[in-house]
Simulated scan of single mutants.
Amino acid sequence: MAETTVAEVMAELAGLEDPKSRAVNEKHGDDHGVNLGKLRAIAKRLKTQQELARGLWATGDSAARLLALLICRPKAFERAELDTMLREARTPKVHDWLVNYVVKKNPHAEELRLAWSADPDPVVASAGWALTTERVAKRPAGLDLAGLLDVIEARMKDAPERLQWAMNHCLARIGIDHAAYRARAIDIGERLQVLKDYPTAPGCTSPFAPVWIDEMVRRNSGT
């Protein structure tokens, strides 16, 4: 069976372009009009194809890049390649999928976490904080949690939106998962007031850290 080409996939994606999907996506800062369920169906059919994934990424098209992240082999990327990809990923969905579906599974994740967290580009730094949040929740050994809270306390209030969101997530995760730091995490959230007024749909938990922490601790305790 002939291998699928980038041109064939791009033609299929163009045929799935939907103005309503694009309008919804653009409200969230994304720039494609392909329904994500249909995108996942294509990925399921194509299965893992690393070179096709690289070719799709190289097009610069957001829908193609999302598909690339679904069919790639996360462990096959070199550190420098992932660093370049992250700096090219300027829309929220591509950025999030790259970090969550690929970088987190790559053997260079810890090196990239440390490098990105200190990067002057706030979008790159937000990826570093997302990786730190993953470690806070799953592999906290070796992390300086008190030091992370110091940085959050000093910088989160005035951080650009994407970086602020990532730091706030880390703050909440520390409070949820580490009882010894919970009171301080809640206190930082209360004093900084970051995302306190964020519109939250009924039945959803507010991203305001003190509320988020209290709700998740309550759920985890079964009360």
Score class of each variant (00 low, 15 high):
160 P>S: 02
10 M>W: 05
188 I>C: 03
171 L>P: 03
74 P>E: 05
221 S>E: 14
18 D>H: 08
199 P>N: 03
37 G>P: 02
160 P>L: 08
50 Q>M: 12
36 L>E: 11
33 G>D: 02
81 E>S: 08
148 L>Q: 06
5 T>M: 09
97 W>C: 01
74 P>Q: 01
193 Q>F: 04
168 N>A: 07
161 E>T: 10
59 T>Q: 00
201 A>Y: 15
57 W>L: 04
127 A>I: 05
211 V>C: 13
39 L>T: 03
68 A>E: 00
35 N>C: 15
182 R>V: 00
23 A>N: 06
10 M>G: 04
14 A>F: 01
42 I>Y: 11
116 W>N: 00
50 Q>E: 14
105 K>M: 13
98 L>R: 08
54 R>P: 07
4 T>K: 10
34 V>M: 06
155 R>M: 09
126 S>I: 07
35 N>G: 08
217 V>S: 07
57 W>V: 04
25 N>R: 04
178 H>A: 04
130 A>Y: 03
163 L>C: 07
160 P>Q: 09
206 S>L: 06
50 Q>G: 12
79 R>E: 15
91 T>G: 01
101 Y>K: 15
215 E>H: 10
148 L>W: 07
159 A>Q: 12
143 L>G: 09
162 R>I: 15
92 P>D: 07
147 G>A: 06
220 N>P: 05
213 I>M: 11
21 S>M: 05
41 A>G: 09
192 L>P: 00
133 T>A: 12
195 L>I: 05
35 N>I: 08
161 E>K: 11
4 T>P: 02
223 T>I: 05
65 R>Y: 05
176 I>M: 14
20 K>S: 08
93 K>Q: 13
212 W>S: 04
10 M>Q: 11
80 A>S: 11
2 A>L: 13
121 D>W: 08
9 V>L: 04
191 R>I: 05
149 L>N: 03
161 E>M: 13
219 R>Y: 10
201 A>D: 12
193 Q>A: 15
122 P>I: 10
